[in-house]
Simulated assay, not measured.
Amino acid sequence: MNIPQMITRLYHESIDAEHDLGNFTSFLRVCCMRYLALQLSGQIPIDDRVALSSLDVEPILACEKRDYH
């Protein structure tokens, strides 16, 4: 997936989740920073040859929910 495709997908997912799209740019910044933080914490690999779709997302999401809710 290239960057325009990813942004479009996030936009459509935001619409489906009924998020306020008035601040979509800020949402994108938060997504980027969370991605980098997950890499730095070792929860997702830094190696860009590893496809994100190959990861088991349940433990990652459980940590996110525990740490940020």
Rank of each mutant, 00 (worst) to 15 (best):
N2W: 02
I3N: 13
I7R: 13
I7D: 04
T8N: 13
T8P: 00
R9G: 02
R9E: 09
L10P: 01
L10W: 08
L10R: 04
L10I: 14
L10Y: 08
L10K: 02
H12A: 12
S14Q: 05
S14K: 06
I15K: 15
D16E: 11
A17K: 13
H19V: 03
H19D: 05
D20W: 02
D20A: 03
D20I: 00
G22E: 14
G22M: 09
N23G: 08
F24M: 08
T25W: 04
F27N: 03
L28G: 00
M33V: 10
M33E: 10
Y35L: 12
L38W: 06
Q39S: 04
L40H: 12
L40C: 05
S41E: 12
G42I: 01
I44S: 04
P45D: 05
I46D: 11
I46T: 15
D47C: 03
D48H: 10
D48K: 12
R49W: 06
V50I: 14
V50C: 07
A51Q: 07
A51P: 00
L52H: 06
L52Q: 05
S53Y: 05
S54A: 11
S54I: 01
L55R: 01
L55A: 02
D56M: 04
D56A: 10
V57C: 09
V57N: 06
E58P: 00
E58D: 14
I60L: 03
I60H: 01
L61P: 00
A62R: 12
A62D: 15
C63W: 14
C63M: 10
E64H: 13
R66G: 00
Y68A: 13
Y68N: 15
